[in-house]
C-alpha cells in the first residue's frame, strides 16, 4: 500500500478545516464496508473521492450525511461534533448530500421539488433561495410546472443539485452526478462545480469519470475496500498511474501470468 502523501498546503491563507472524518466505520447489517476511513475537507476546496465499484464511496457519503449510522469513528463539521446526527441536522448545519441516481420526486413539479428542498428554510426566505439556486440551471428554471418524471436524466440531475443548493451549503457532497448522462450534459453539470467553488462552497465529489473529476479538483482521495489508499494533490504529475496502482493494490510484477 502506498504511503499517504504529506499534508498538502492549500494556497492562500491558513486553511480552515471544514469537514473532519476520523476513523469512520460503517456498513449494512453485518457487512462492514468502511474500515477506519479518515479524510479532511478544507473550507472552499474541491475534493474528489475516487475508487473502483464497491470500494465504499457512496457508503462514506451516506455515513457523513447521517443517512447511514456509524459503527465507529467521529465526524466534525465546521468545528462542531456531528457524530450521530441525522440527515436533517447535517443539512441544517450546511452539509448537504446530493445522492446518486438523480432521484427527483417524479409525481411533483420542478417548483414543488424545489419547495420540498426548502422545507426547513423560513418561509420568507424560501422563494429567494429557490430563485438563486435555479439561477445556476436556466434550462429547468424556465419549466417550473413540468413534472419531475417528465425530465431527462440530465435535467433531473440539475434539479437535484439545485435542490441541494437551496440549503446554501458550506459543503456540497455530490454522488456520481455524471452517471447516466449524455457527454454534453456531463460537462454542463460538472462545470457548476467551478462556479460554486468561486462562491466559496466546498465540494466533495464522487465520480466515475476520473479525468473529469481530477481536472476540477484541488485534491483527491482514493478508496478501495473501505480504506483510503491514496491522498494526493490533483496536480500530481503521474496521478492516473498512481491511482491505478492504488486500486489494484499490487505491483505489476505481482500480476499473475495468464493461465
Amino acid at each position: 500500500m502506498p504511503t499517504l502523501a504529506p499534508e498538502i498546503p492549500i494556497p492562500g491563507t491558513s486553511p480552515q478545516v471544514l469537514l473532519d472524518v476520523q476513523s469512520v466505520e460503517a456498513g449494512y447489517g453485518k457487512i462492514g464496508v468502511l474500515h477506519g476511513v479518515s479524510i479532511t475537507v478544507y473550507a472552499g476546496e474541491v475534493v474528489s473521492l475516487l475508487g473502483p465499484n464497491g470500494a465504499g464511496k457512496t457508503t462514506l457519503l451516506r455515513a457523513i450525511s447521517g443517512l447511514l449510522p456509524l459503527t465507529g469513528g467521529r465526524l466534525r463539521f465546521d468545528a462542531r461534533d456531528i457524530t450521530g446526527s441525522g440527515p436533517r441536522e447535517t443539512a441544517r448545519a450546511g452539509l448537504v448530500h446530493v445522492i446518486e441516481g438523480h432521484r427527483v420526486f417524479t409525481q411533483q413539479t420542478i417548483a414543488d421539488n424545489m419547495l420540498l428542498a426548502g422545507y426547513d428554510v423560513p418561509r420568507r426566505e424560501r422563494a429567494l433561495r429557490i430563485e438563486q439556486a435555479l439561477a445556476y440551471f436556466p434550462e429547468i428554471a424556465s419549466r417550473l410546472q413540468v413534472l419531475g418524471g417528465a425530465l431527462s436524466g440530465g435535467q433531473q440531475q440539475m434539479l437535484v443539485v439545485a435542490q441541494g443548493l437551496v440549503r446554501r451549503p458550506r459543503l456540497l457532497m455530490l454522488d456520481e452526478p455524471s452517471a447516466g448522462l449524455a457527454p454534453v450534459l456531463v460537462d454542463r453539470v460538472l462545470d457548476v462545480i467551478g462556479e460554486l467553488k468561486q462562491q466559496g462552497t466546498a465540494i466533495l465529489l464522487v465520480e466515475q469519470l476520473v479525468e473529469k473529476a481530477i481536472s476540477r479538483s484541488d485534491r483527491v482521495y482514493a478508496i478501495t475496500r473501505g480504506r483510503i489508499v491514496l491522498e494526493a494533490a490533483a496536480a500530481t504529475p503521474d496521478l492516473p498511474r498512481r491511482l491505478e496502482h492504488a486500486y489494484f493494490g499490487h505491483t505489476d510484477a505481482a500480476i499473475p501470468p495468464a493461465v
Partner: peptide, 19 residues
C-alpha cells in the same frame, strides 16, 4: 478474452476503472 489480454487492454482499464 484471456485474462492476461484483458488486464492490459487500454480501453478496458479505463472503462473498468472509470476514466
Amino acid at each position: 478474452g484471456a485474462a492476461a489480454e484483458i488486464r492490459v487492454h487500454k480501453e478496458v482499464v479505463s472503462a473498468y476503472l472509470g476514466a
